[in-house]
């Protein structure tokens, strides 16, 4: 594939509160190609959302801080960019949509204003041109009566419509990267499918790369070209979509896949992974998944494996890789 639009190397983001350090993102590396959709999958607490907020440098006003690594975007390292540089990128070259469409729009301003303000900020256009662009964008994301909607308030729209507005807002400046943090989690199933389809369409027409943050493997299957699986602040597996679903390598990924029901398959028992994501206090010194892993060995307790490719070129973080004998 072509050009890398984003290259994250050894990202470390820590949260510091009451003198305690929580390593929310602990040495994460991944890259995003132009026009590609990369999924970042994990349970809550896996560090996937913090990763996306780090890329946007939106950790200001939180106790979180990027303490290591680089985030290369074009010629700029976002991890070390100034506020001013970031403001030019945010909403313009990299934009983001969030999980909560109901609360992510400002209730006291009309949709039109919320759409145009970003366009006016980044593109040197008049208010009239911005309004035209806003209307175009609303039509593009499939909102009927786009012209009237511009003059309406967020509370007059349904959740699905609001998420469409959020997407229109995020896409208004033709960004190179769209980060979608659980964009459909708060929506009804039918609406979810519509929104995902819309995002796929937009990606094809605009060649925008999408970073899809989700816990939902169904969304991943629908959208992504490649997947990064995160667990307890680290990447445990990275794979192209077909390979991941056909043959998950890391025990955690296997667990995740086993816990979703498959259509047309007689399932006697839905397995779920026992135990919970470790907290900073219970973080194992060896492999972080060891306490929940069905294949845990003595070595797993002592040493955390490194993320590397096996002889088939599959990348995952597990000691079984060296045993080469589990299925």
């Amino acid at each position: 594939m072509a050009e890398k639009v984003l290259d994250v190397v050894d990202l470390e983001t820590h949260f510091i509160s009451d003198g305690k350090v929580v390593k929310a993102v602990d040495g994460v590396s991944f890259h995003l190609y132009k026009g590609e959709t990369l999924g970042i999958v994990g349970e809550s607490g896996s560090g996937k959302s913090v990763t996306s907020l780090s890329v946007m440098q939106l950790l200001r006003n939180t106790p979180g801080k990027i303490v290591g690594g680089t985030i290369q975007f074009g010629t700029l390292d976002i991890a070390h960019a100034s506020d001013k540089q970031m403001r030019k990128i945010r909403g313009n070259q990299i934009s983001m949509i969030f999980q909560e469409p109901m609360t992510s729009l400002n209730p006291v301003y009309k949709i039109g204003r919320q759409l145009t303000e970003g366009i006016i900020l980044h593109k040197n256009v008049s208010k009239k041109e911005a309004t035209q662009r806003a209307q175009q964008m609303l039509e593009k994301v499939g909102i009927p009566r786009a012209k009237q909607i511009l003059n309406e308030y967020p509370h007059q729209l349904s959740g699905g419509m609001r998420q469409r507005v959020m997407i229109a807002m995020a896409m208004a400046c033709d960004p190179e990267i769209l980060i979608a943090d659980e964009p459909t989690t708060a929506l009804d199933v039918t609406i979810q499918a519509q929104i995902l389809e819309l995002m796929n369409e937009l990606r094809e027409t605009s060649q925008t790369s999408i970073l899809m943050i989700t816990h939902d493997l169904g969304v991943v299957a629908e959208m992504c070209d490649r997947v990064v699986v995160m667990y307890a602040g680290q990447i445990v597996e990275e794979a192209p979509i077909e390979a991941l679903f056909a043959q998950p390598k890391h025990p955690y990924t296997q667990g995740l896949l086993a816990s979703i029901p498959k259509l047309g398959e007689e399932v006697e028992e839905l397995t779920s992974i026992s135990g919970t994501v470790p907290t900073p206090e219970t973080m194992p010194s060896g492999c972080r998944f060891e306490p929940r892993c069905p294949y845990a060995m003595a070595r797993c307790k002592e040493q955390n494996p490194v993320l590397k490719a096996d002889e088939d070129g599959r990348v995952y973080r597990c000691w079984l890789q060296e045993e080469g004998s589990h299925e």
Partner: peptide, 8 residues
Amino acid sequence: RTGRAKGF
């Protein structure tokens, strides 16, 4: 947060 994500 949306406003920040817009680059304000």
